[in-house]
């Protein structure tokens, strides 16, 4: 028994897809997150859909990933460089065992390394990647087609939505269960 049914409609123009979205919203009780737009280039936020959920759940929390990992990197750097001077207390060149400059340099580099890792993790976590399963998708999207993905509760609704989207100007419709 599938959770929900999905319709993927391909459009050619931004105007048509926005019109269709309006139609779908008028017809069905959709909530944020039930609709998704698949494009080959980043559309500025609000051009097609204005995902409030996304904005609130992701935009602010995404900053935390590089930030928190950056702090972890800071601690790692201090632990490595400072800890070394604590454990290996050899006199080299008459320099103080714990010196600020080398510790600072190592700390800086490690903070940034962990920041990079944090950024990538934020991408993977919030975008739900990697996901190699067969999802609702059409290769034409990367050739410039604009895909509208609508999640619906029943099969009847799915049929209805497909018809509606075709009427609104979709030139190709794909239907499936769950996320296909």
């Amino acid at each position: 028994m599938s959770d929900h049914y999905t319709v993927l409609a391909l459009f050619k123009k931004v105007d048509t897809i926005t019109r269709s979205i309006d139609n779908v919203i008028r017809e069905f009780e959709t909530v944020d997150g039930d609709m998704e737009v698949l494009t080959s280039a980043a559309l500025p936020d609000g051009v097609v859909i204005d995902d409030k959920t996304l904005e609130h759940q992701v935009q602010y929390r995404q900053y935390l990933f590089p930030f928190i990992l950056g702090i972890c990197g800071f601690v790692t750097g201090v632990a490595l460089a400072g800890g070394t001077s604590w454990i290996v207390n050899l006199n080299v060149g008459g320099k103080a065992a714990f010196s600020f400059a080398p510790t600072g340099i190592i700390t800086y580099e490690f903070s940034l390394l962990f920041g990079v890792i944090g950024s990538v993790l934020s991408l993977l976590y919030f975008a739900g990647l990697p996901n190699w399963t067969d999802r609702a998708y059409d290769p034409e999207i990367t050739d410039g087609a604009l895909g509208l993905l609508v999640k619906l509760k029943t099969r009847e609704e799915q049929e209805k939505a497909a018809a509606l989207l075709t009427d609104s100007g979709a030139y190709k419709i794909r239907k499936g269960e769950n996320d296909f």
Binding site: V88, L90, N91, V92, G93, G94, K95
Partner: peptide
């Protein structure tokens, strides 16, 4: 020479 060695191969 000591402080520049990355592996503590030389020290005082």
């Amino acid at each position: 020479c000591e402080s520049v060695c990355p592996v503590w191969a030389t020290y005082q």
